[in-house]
Amino acid sequence: MDFSAYLSARNTVQFLGEPLFTTVFLLALISCVLSVLYLYKKEERYEKMSFLISLACVFLLTIGFILLIYFHIKIHQTIDLQDPFSNEIVGKYWIPLWINEEKLYFWMFCFAIIMILIWKSKREMREFNVSLNLIFGVYVFVCFFFSNPFKSPLSQFHEEISLWNSALAALKTGQLAHWYVLAQLFESMYGRMVYYYNTSYMWIHPPLLFFSYAAFTVTFLACIFMLLKKDDTYENLAYSITKIGYLPLTFGILIGYPWAVVAWQNEPWWWAPKINASILMWILYTSFLHLRIYVREKKIWNLTAYLGIICFITLIFTYLVTYLGVGAHAYR
């Protein structure tokens, strides 16, 4: 294990990433102001400028994402887990790009790409596009202040690996009083590596869900516009984008089950709040897709739109449930 090389890579990511993300934050802020100006004054130039600035944001976010990929590759190259008793290397880390603080960044990144694609393909929907941009601003704000992946890159992993490194150093200098402390720590590190960091499931389950969350954000706004404008364009958009998000959501939720059966054998996860919330969210989106078949019927238009909004509130709730601390999914 080359801990100093790992630290150096982490510092590089921090050094380059922080100003990069600050720039994105400032640009998103300007873009949001321009969007509000467009909504207020309806002058096309504001919308155009807003689009260009958002495009620049997506470009910078892509660089940020590449920086994170670099960091993860560096972790793989520099950090391995060695059994302190047999000296055998039990594995190297292959950490997915959507854990710890990176989750929200990935979700925001997916949303930003979807937003730009919609903006480019549906230029005539100016009000809708600038409103999408305002939501993008909210994403950037939340991610920048509450889940910034460059402020302390992979903070939880860093804490774990630093502790392990200190334990190994203490072992070498003879300061470690009890071997069983090291054995326990190794067992915990190995468990985290096999069932969390390196599991193939982590490469499939979270990104599919975050992608669908990003798509459903557009559904949410389209449903608000359905209520405000009563225009078929928004209903069609809500349906097409929900279709895009629904399949990854279904597959993403289902693929979690076989993993949970193996990894959480003795953990309390049946009917845990996160599971309940996920089922609730899936049920609501399924109902949304069922209901919209009859969107032309009396009162169904509004009902569908309200349901789409409730779906998104449930989505946010499902995401936050993880942080409330009950069940195997929870962060404690």
Partner: peptide, 8 residues
């Protein structure tokens, strides 16, 4: 499910 969440 909502009942389950609150109860838990």
């Amino acid at each position: 499910c909502l009942f389950g969440i609150i109860y838990a």
